[in-house]
Simulated assay, not measured.
Amino acid sequence: MRQSLDTILLVLGILAVWQLLNWSAGDIAIASPAATFARAGELLTSATFWPHVWETASALVYALLIAILGGLTVGLALGLHKVSGEVAEPILISLYSLPKITLYPLILLVFGLGMSAKVAFGAIHGIIPVAIFTLGAVRTIAPVYFKTARVLRLSRGQLVSTVVVPAAIPELVSGLRVGFSLTLLGVMIGEMFASQRGLGYLIMNAIGTLDVPTMMAVILILATVAIAISGGLLYLDRRLHHRAS
């Protein structure tokens, strides 16, 4: 009950600040909450809006699959080999801190314009944090589990599927939550700079035509969906960590 009340108060506070900014800067700079919600309703009932949603959703799903599968594979491989993990971890952290936008010209050169570039740019945002979280999750597994696996003479595949993954699930979900947010960010940046379809394209097109209500409405829709998915993953993350403790 208290958490729900805090959420409502937070939303009301954001709306109040939003309205104050509208009164201060004017409609040319930021649309009011009422105008934004009205425009969002128009977009959601427009047949021309949903192909852009599908384009962004498709790119996000492909990028997430690559980031999750690639990150889990790299993280598990490094985590199960102590020396490789110790050598690779600072390299992964350095790559994680690198501004990915600097790689965008290279992405365009390799993949060209269109879906493949957006997927690649989203994947490189998400794969490294997933790998780092997975590596950390494997390291926190109690050594007794590995000793038991050696006694039972489990193969590497059996070790991963029956010992490592179940024991590391809470940390893996944390990595997936961070990976989702960053992958979505990468896809949106890709659509903003080199795409003719998608929600990122709509935002940039609205900025170019000074269509502030449309820009704000697309951002509102995108933020609402992203917060809902991240909130679900956060809830699952907390439940798993609580159960593990």
Rank of each mutant, 00 (worst) to 15 (best):
S97H: 08
F37S: 09
H52D: 10
S58E: 15
T209V: 06
M188G: 07
A149T: 04
T134Y: 00
R243W: 15
D6P: 14
S24F: 14
L182T: 05
A31T: 02
L199I: 04
M215L: 13
Y145E: 05
R150P: 07
G71V: 05
L159K: 00
I68M: 11
L76Y: 00
T134N: 03
G114N: 06
E42I: 09
I203G: 03
L98C: 10
I141V: 10
L60Y: 09
A149M: 02
V74S: 11
S155D: 10
A226I: 05
T140W: 06
D6Q: 14
A59C: 13
Q158I: 05
G71E: 07
V218P: 00
I127N: 02
R243K: 13
V187R: 01
L43K: 05
L10V: 12
E191I: 04
Q19W: 11
P170S: 04
R139P: 01
V218H: 02
D237M: 10
G200A: 06
N205Y: 09
T56Q: 04
L64G: 07
T224Y: 01
L172I: 08
E42R: 13
A217S: 05
A131E: 01
Q3T: 14
T148N: 12
G179C: 07
D211M: 04
R156C: 08
A16T: 13
L10E: 08
L98V: 10
V165T: 05
S97E: 08
D27N: 13
I101S: 09
V61S: 05
I30C: 04
A25I: 10
L106T: 08
G232M: 08
I66L: 15
T102Y: 11
Q158D: 11
Y96I: 02
R2M: 13
T214P: 00
T73S: 15
P105W: 03
T214Y: 04
I169R: 11
L109G: 03
I14M: 07
V173H: 03
L222Q: 05
T7E: 14
V17E: 02
Y201G: 04
M115K: 11
I66Y: 07
F193E: 02
L95Y: 03
I101Q: 05
L78Y: 00
V83W: 13
L64A: 09
Q3E: 12
L233R: 01
V130E: 08
T224M: 09
P90T: 06
V164T: 00
F121W: 05
Y62I: 15
T148Y: 12
L182A: 01
L240Y: 06
A29N: 09
R156Q: 12
I221G: 06
F193P: 02
A123D: 07
R150H: 12
A142F: 06
G190M: 06
W23N: 10
L95S: 09
A117G: 06
A217R: 00
Q3C: 09
S181L: 14
V187N: 06
L182S: 02
T134W: 00
M1Q: 12
